Amino acid sequence: MEKTMMFSFFLVALLSTNFFTGSSEPVLDTEGHPVRPGVKYYILPPYPGAGSGLTLAPNKGKCPYEIVQILSEPANGLPVTFSSANAHDKTIQLNTDLNIKFTDFKHTTPCHESKVWKFDASKQQFVTVGGVEGKPGPETLPNWFKIQKEHKDYKIQYCPTVCKKCRVICGDVGPVIYNNKKHLAVKESPLSVIFKKA
């Protein structure tokens, strides 16, 4: 990976083949049902007072748009769909490489990129849109995320394993206050989340 992928605050580079063992536990929504590919869900904090759902915000007139948490309450934000790197998966599993894509974004914007989540390896290390859906491999590493358990809830993590020979830096997706907005970035402290069917 490029030097810009290096985190000054987090883990040293790890071989993706050695980082995690597989897991067959399904991710559950707020009703206790398995989260399924292609179905719309809201990503929400698990308790009141922790903010609301997620949406997109302009990047000072530049593309792509950035992912932010809505500060006012209550608000579901934009729904997302999940798709696994294994197209045959009927449910979303813990510790599985997956794409996350916003749906129902109806605002007219000057940006025409996809609404697939992407890790931006710049200094801020924000999560943006503009990723590529599917095509797992070294060229699409920034587009793959995982869901992990976080106590009784969940967290989203960047630690792709779609390339067996690639070296990657792993980190949790959590909030960072920047320009009065609560951006999602890859960092040490995760944002605890739940998944509510839209």
Rank of each mutant, 00 (worst) to 15 (best):
K115Y: 08
E31R: 13
Y178D: 15
A185M: 01
L191Q: 15
M5K: 05
Y41E: 07
L54K: 03
E150H: 15
Q69V: 10
S83A: 11
L15E: 12
N179C: 05
Y41W: 05
V132S: 01
I169A: 14
V35C: 04
N99F: 05
C63R: 05
S114C: 00
N86R: 09
S52R: 04
K197C: 06
V162P: 07
H107F: 05
S23H: 04
N99Q: 07
K118M: 13
V186N: 01
P46W: 10
P45V: 14
S83W: 00
F105G: 02
N76A: 13
G32I: 12
G51L: 07
F9S: 14
Y65S: 07
L98P: 08
K146G: 04
I194E: 11
A13P: 01
Q157A: 06
C166G: 06
V129W: 01
F126V: 08
K155M: 13
I92C: 08
E188S: 14
Y42P: 03
K3L: 14
T96W: 06
L191G: 09
T140V: 03
C166F: 00
G171L: 04
C159M: 04
F9Q: 15
T21R: 12
F102I: 00
Q124E: 10
H107N: 10
N18D: 07
I70D: 00
L11A: 14
F102N: 02
F119G: 00
L15G: 15
I177Y: 09
P64R: 06
F10A: 14
I70F: 04
Q93W: 12
P175L: 15
T55S: 10
V80G: 02
T55C: 13
Y65E: 12
F126A: 13
H33D: 15
L11F: 05
